[in-house]
């Protein structure tokens, strides 16, 4: 048999020591080490170092001083306000995001690509500009200003303004997670449910939603992280009223400008911690449910 013939001829080759051939597609050893070192140095300098610096600065005067920073009622109210704003903005964006991605991924209609670019608008517009838009609309000199004043409604320099600005800035996060996944899943499961007699809402609730649940959680996570960390848009509509309209990022700025570095970095460490937790959960989701999130993104 031919196989035997090959084996008989082989031993003369087998006796020599295995030769380590360089991989034909890899760079030389020196080049590899240099490139990897460069990448590590870059990431360390620009990402890791600042993160470490936040915590180092926060604990510079000891653990006690760190926790004392949170005794300030203005800081506590800033943390509380941030939670409230996120607690309103994120659920609303979940609803908007679900509705928009459902419409875009499962239906054909005129103006679909316009709606898609509209969803991406917050990514391309500077947050400060979006904050300014709300001031121009709802501020005292704004379009609806006189009407709001007459009815004793305050939007700018108050919670509603903060929520509006946050919603605007975080609008794309949920929708952007869901649209590629929903498009990839197609509509045949929904059609199957309809043909089996299920109504529209039942189909959405029992078929569409469970299929995107992990991607939705992923989107909520990113949306929440951005909602809590947003500075620009919120800064414009907030008015910086201490203890009233300051969120965590604004409070950090105020403390820093007051030369209260330990407190500034202590409060900043809360945001940084939130970021790290988000990152950990996000990686966990990607690791565990990567196939059910979306093949389209790796960000």
């Amino acid at each position: 048999m031919p196989a035997d013939a090959t084996l008989a001829a082989a031993p003369s080759l087998g006796t020599s020591a295995p030769i380590q051939l360089p991989s034909p597609i890899a760079e030389s050893r020196g080049a590899r080490i240099a490139l990897i070192a460069l990448a590590v140095a870059f990431l360390g300098f620009f990402l890791l170092l600042p993160l470490v610096a936040v915590f180092v600065e926060a604990f510079r005067k000891g653990v006690e001083a760190y926790f004392e920073s949170f005794d300030d009622p203005d800081t506590l109210s800033a943390i509380w306000l941030t939670v409230v704003v996120a607690a309103i903005a994120v659920p609303l964006n979940v609803v908007f995001g679900l509705a928009a991605s459902w419409a875009i991924a499962k239906f054909e209609f005129k103006g679909k690509s316009f709606l898609l670019s509209l969803i991406d608008l917050p990514f391309s517009v500077s947050p400060v500009v979006s904050g300014m838009c709300y001031v121009l609309l709802f501020g005292a000199q704004g379009v609806f200003g006189p009407w709001l004043a007459k009815h004793d409604l305050q939007i700018i320099f108050a919670l509603p303004g903060l929520v509006l600005a946050t919603i605007f800035v975080t609008f794309p996060f949920v929708a952007r997670e869901l649209i590629p996944l929903m498009q990839e899943q197609g509509t045949s499961e929904e059609e199957a449910a309809l043909s089996l007699g299920a109504g529209g809402f039942r189909t959405f609730w029992s078929v569409t939603l469970p299929n995107v649940r992990w991607a939705l959680l992923y989107g909520v996570l990113l949306c929440n992280a951005r909602a809590m960390g947003e500075f620009g848009a919120v800064s414009v509509v907030s008015g910086h009223l201490r203890g009233l309209t300051n969120t965590i990022p604004l409070q950090v700025e105020i403390l820093y400008n007051d030369y209260n570095f330990v407190a500034a970095f202590a409060v900043a460490s809360v945001l940084a911690g939130l970021g790290l937790v988000t990152l950990a959960i996000k990686s966990g989701l990607e690791w565990r449910y990567g196939d059910q999130i979306s093949s389209a993104h790796r960000h």
């Binding site: 449910a193 089996l196 029992s206």
Partner: peptide, 8 residues
């Protein structure tokens, strides 16, 4: 599914 959520 059809028996639980259908029109029957």
């Amino acid at each position: 599914f059809g028996m639980r959520h259908g029109q029957g």
